[in-house]
Write a protein that binds this DNA or RNA. Structure first.
Length: 567
RNA sequence: CGGGGUGUGGCGCAGUCCGGUUAGCGCACUUGGUUUGGGACCAAGGGGCCGCAGGUUCAAAUCCUGCCACCCCGACCA
């Protein structure tokens, strides 16, 4: 390919809207252009790379028996109503104004289940893995970071259909290993975390994560031990408070200047781990007191999965004063109105030496015995793990990192097949719903992650297993020097004869301009052909990965390139 | 949806507070010339309903009102 014929509008300056390195570089290197918030056009150079990613995904999906579909983005709303997801999706789903019975599909469980319901009738038809690479539409409240979070984006979504949960386990494992192969081949550093299934339904799910400061998820990881979990479900190895032998009556003491746990601990010389804090939440409109170690932070996602609802919020100061007749800072688990249910964190289970608010402004109790003095409904893990805490595998410290969710695999179960009547007859002639799994990869996200992990100040750095072209030939004075032109054309021809793809910079540009553009485009090997070198029959070969330059004989060029790519 | 910010040629910006030459600068673009191994120089050019609508005024990029778009933080995120 001659560069003069390829539309790659590179930018010298970074558009001011971009924050994330991959976003800046995608714009600068002419991969994408933004059309609206969360909506992008893929330009030729970017689309080449996007198709590379898709090809890897296709190969690995086909390798586990996946069959590629192309499902419509326009969906009958009726199908979505059968699973109650028009309501569940709410504002996330795009609706069509002048054709009210259609919606834009944000995902395709329904359509898959619909096709299965029509055509899959027997356990003998299963298992099936159906997938597609196609546009998804989600009315994101706030698109951001370029293609990382868009309103229209390309997703590889696959769905497994099995006759029982054992089959689902197998299909799930196949996807797990296929995903690992895909991300390995793409050269992405990632980790896998157990995740919360959220409103998707189903029981098991894992996310493929990429550590990145701009990531929207938070994870607790220790790479050496292999422990990694979304902060929403992460746990750590912490010694719980123990019951003390001596059983003391709880007693009230005055704490006028201790509104926070730190003040309480300091002013009254109390071990901070014995100071319990009372967090009041309104869960499904009912007040709940969560008692936990004073320094711990309540994890709202854990709270929501424990109570199986998304309808949670912190109580207002006014509500707290209503329920406890005391100001926040002085409330506690003793003598609580019976309308308020009390739950406590596992770390303080059954302890008897806690200090907590007395439900009387400016007073606390000490020697609280949770078994004796309080009416604890149940103990759960409510806390958010913190940086440096011991991981549960080998006790080494956890790191808290931001991460990008690249892929997500779910064991769905029968929610969608039941709703849409996708049923089979099993070996005994008994009717059963198909057991489904659902698996996604953000294709553009994957490309952005590759860029996030492979760039420098001058531009992109594609890995050699994953490059838009194998070689970038920079023909200096290509348009002026017949000698340069001949050598460039010959080299290109020889490389292409060896199945190596070539981008030849044949443009009427000055050398410096071509060098800068080449670094920006990031093709792994740059070969500079100029009159100066050709005097000695030499060309210069540069590895973009480390920017090392070497002069070699023109005649060795093809062999050098082959050697590089075979290595 | 709440908070903050920004809209001026393809890109990056100044000018707006305090209204008043013909709306400016750098990059990019066109033409000519000189150049040519890390984003050249000189000269001459082209390109703007200053986000949109309304208002105030003799006069609006600039002041007022409303709207729209984009970015950031938060909420939300199968």
């Amino acid at each position: 390919m001659n560069q003069s014929q390829l539309f790659i509008p590179t930018l010298k300056e970074t558009p001011s809207d971009a924050q994330m390195p991959s976003h800046k570089l995608m714009l600068r290197a002419g991969l994408v252009r933004q059309i609206a918030a969360g909506v992008f056009s893929w330009l030729p150079y970017g689309y080449i790379m996007l198709k590379r990613v898709q090809a890897v995904i296709n190969e690995e999906m086909n390798a586990i028996g996946g069959q590629e579909f192309l499902l419509p983005a326009l969906n009958p709303k009726d199908i979505w109503e059968q699973t109650n997801r028009v309501e569940a999706m709410g504002d996330v789903m795009f609706h069509i104004k002048n054709r009210d019975n259609l919606v834009l599909a944000p995902t395709h469980e329904e359509i898959i289940a619909y096709h299965a319901s029509q055509s899959i009738k027997s356990y003998k038809d299963l298992p099936q893995i159906w997938y597609q690479i196609q546009n998804k539409f989600r009315n994101e409240p706030r698109p951001k970071s370029g293609v990382m979070r868009g309103r229209q984006f390309i997703m590889k979504d696959s769905y497994s259909l099995d006759s029982n949960t054992e089959g689902l386990d197998e299909s799930y494992d196949k996807h797990y290993s296929a995903y690992k192969k895909i991300f390995d081949r793409l050269g992405i550093n990632y980790f896998v975390v157990g995740a919360s299934s959220g409103a998707m339904g189903g029981n098991k799910s894992q996310e493929f994560m990429v550590e990145n400061e701009f990531g929207e998820d938070t994870c607790a990881v220790n790479y050496e031990s292999g422990y990694a979990a979304n902060i929403e479900v992460a746990v750590s190895d912490i010694i719980p408070n123990q019951r003390v032998e001596e059983e003391l009556e709880f007693e009230e003491f005055e704490t006028p200047n201790s509104k926070t746990i730190e003040e309480l601990s300091k002013n009254h010389n109390i071990n901070i781990e014995n100071c319990a804090k009372s967090v009041v939440y309104i869960i499904d409109s009912k007040p709940v007191l969560i008692l936990m170690r004073g320094t711990d932070i309540l994890n709202e996602t854990k709270l929501q999965s424990i109570f199986e609802t998304n309808n949670t919020r912190p109580a207002t100061e006014e509500e707290i004063e209503n329920f406890f007749s005391a100001k926040p800072g002085s409330i506690g688990p003793v003598n609580v109105d019976e309308k308020v249910k009390i739950y406590a964190d596992l770390l303080i289970k059954d302890t008897n030496d806690l200090v907590s608010g007395a439900n009387k402004t400016g007073y606390h109790f000490k020697n609280i015995d949770l078994k004796r003095d309080c009416n604890i409904e149940e103990y759960y893990d409510f806390r958010t793990v913190l940086e440096g805490e011991a991981n549960i595998v080998d006790g080494k410290p956890l790191k808290i990192v931001n991460a990008i969710e690249l892929g997500h695999i779910f064991k769905l179960g029968t929610k969608y097949s039941e709703a849409l009547g996708a049923k089979i007859l099993d070996e005994n002639g008994k009717e059963k719903p198909i057991v489904m799994g659902s698996y996604g990869i953000g294709v553009e996200r994957a490309l952005a992650c590759i860029i996030e992990q492979n760039y420098d100040d001058n531009g992109l750095k594609w890995g050699k297993n994953f490059a838009p072209f194998h070689v970038h030939i920079l023909g200096l004075s290509y348009n002026k020097s017949e000698n340069v032109k001949e050598h460039c054309d010959k080299l290109k021809e020889n490389l292409e004869a060896n199945a190596l793809s070539v981008l030849l910079d044949d443009r009427k540009e000055r050398p410096g301009f071509k060098f800068k553009d080449a670094d920006l485009l990031g093709i792994p090997l740059q070969i500079t052909v100029g009159d100066r070198g050709l005097e000695n029959n030499e060309i210069e070969i540069k590895l973009r990965i480390n920017n090392e330059k070497n002069k070699i004989s023109f005649d060795d060029a093809v062999d050098e390139v082959i050697k590089y790519y075979n290595n």
